[in-house]
Design a protein around this nucleic acid. Structure first.
Length: 410
DNA sequence: TCTGGGGTCCTAGGACCC
DNA sequence: TCTGGGGTCCTAGGACCC
């Protein structure tokens, strides 16, 4: 409460830093809403919700003024509106946020080459090598916050700790507009007091499981014997929990991580029952991620179809191709085959497609030795990519998708 | 109030190979 | 004649994060 109206700002003075914490976690406060406010200064003092104003839509971000009314991310917009009728509702503009994100990351990169971007609005920075130039970790954290505010008009909270996960915990705890430094000697005490659910990776399910054994704090996790923990939550989760509970983390700040999958999914405005329409939606859906594959010079090995029915039952079906591809037609056919093969006949709420098993197109065997039909489809892709690049993605629509949309509008 | 869309990672069973 | 065990890949489902 006090932190939310700014009267007790949670800022550790930089002098608290004793030189044992070198990882910063920078987390932008209410990022999308803050970026929108730069464009809408007249809304500065009002509750602002970033979300599509549609029946099945959920809240993407809300500013702190709206959060006071109980509005939260992922909450249905209908509910948010009822909780906070005076809020301004702004549709998300992801291009704008990506651009702002790039400016943020650009500033961070000036302090250290070791910047790991986690999402649009978050990054870890390892400043071990930066003290000579910029001073202590605490001092660097302060300078970063000042520059983001002065140059971009954006507020960030920063956590400083000896390991990544603790830095992230710290930034979360001093939000908004805060700075929290956790020195090595303070780390165990800091962790012990936390509920397990505070750890990233521990959600509702794991929390419930642990609570059935009477375990609810990080300290209790630390005091469990390892085999028992494994029985409770499984091997990988146990390993992670056991390490974190002791303040340990082996992986450091890794600047670039290769993408593992590319996909797209849509929740339809109304449930669809006609399988021809679902197929048409699916075909159109494949276009975007296929283009992304080609733009990033990647090939996909596996195609996964995702379907959700009116009762929220969700299934997935996947198929590994014999040869990785980036050809839209091949990917469309794989997706269609999966749909036809699974015998789905329920009213459909969501359709999705995802490509995994990504490999670099450069590493793949040269495909100009291939012959026949796929070559012609590839030529069509090249032409279509050129057109969409010049005139936008709306300019090209697969004929099957077009027929479906005509059918719907009749 | 009725549940988005972009992802990552893990589990578990079965096939297949050595 | 019956049977071990480990590794890897594929598939389906689910937990989790922002």
């Amino acid at each position: 409460m006090s932190a939310q109206d700014g009267s007790h700002r949670r800022v550790t003075p930089a002098e608290h830093d004793d030189g044992t914490a070198h990882i910063l976690h920078v987390d932008m406060d209410a990022f999308f809403a803050s970026v929108e406010l730069l464009d809408h200064p007249e809304l500065r003092d009002r509750p602002v919700i970033v979300a599509h104003d549609a029946p099945r839509s959920v809240v993407t971000t809300a500013n702190y003024r709206a959060r006071r009314f109980g509005v939260r991310s992922a909450m249905p917009v209908a509910m948010a509106k009822r909780m906070c009728p005076g809020a301004a509702l702004l549709p998300p503009r992801h291009g704008l946020y990506r651009a702002a994100s790039a400016r943020v990351m650009h500033i961070l990169a000036e302090f250290s080459p070791l910047v790991e971007q986690v999402s649009v609005d978050e990054a870890w920075i390892d400043v071990s090598g930066a003290h000579g130039l910029f001073g202590s970790s605490g001092a660097i954290a302060e300078r970063i916050r000042e520059r983001l505010r002065a140059e971009l008009g954006l507020i960030a909270s920063v956590g400083v700790a000896p390991v990544k996960f603790a830095a992230k915990l710290a930034s979360g705890m001093c939000k908004p507009d805060g700075l929290l430094i956790v020195n090595r000697s303070e780390l165990q005490g800091f962790l012990d007091a936390l509920p397990v659910g505070a750890l990233s990776g521990v959600g509702e399910h794991t929390r419930d499981r642990l609570s059935r054994y009477g375990v609810s704090t990080v300290r209790q996790v630390r005091e469990l014997r390892y085999p028992r923990l494994v029985r409770m939550v499984g091997e990988a989760m146990a390993r992670m929990l056991s390490e974190r509970a002791r303040g340990r983390q082996t992986d450091g700040v890794t600047p670039v991580r290769a993408e593992r999958s590319i996909g797209r999914e849509v929740t339809l405005p109304e449930d669809l029952s006609d399988s021809r329409e679902i197929l048409a939606t699916l075909s159109a859906l494949v276009e975007g991620p296929s283009r992304t594959l080609r733009a990033q010079k990647l090939l996909a090995r596996t195609v996964t179809l995702k379907l959700r029915d009116a009762d929220f039952q969700t299934i997935s079906r996947s198929h590994a191709l014999s040869v990785p591809t980036d050809t839209t037609q091949v990917l469309v056919e794989a997706a269609r085959d999966l749909f036809i093969g699974c015998g789905w006949d329920r009213p459909t709420r969501l359709v999705g497609v995802r490509f995994t098993g990504l490999v670099s197109a450069e590493d793949a065997p040269a495909r100009d030795v291939l012959w026949g039909e796929e070559d012609r489809w590839r030529a069509a892709d090249v032409a279509s990519d050129e057109i969409t690049q010049r005139f936008g993605t709306e300019s090209m629509v697969r004929a099957t998708a077009l027929r479906a949309s005509r059918r719907r509008s009749r």
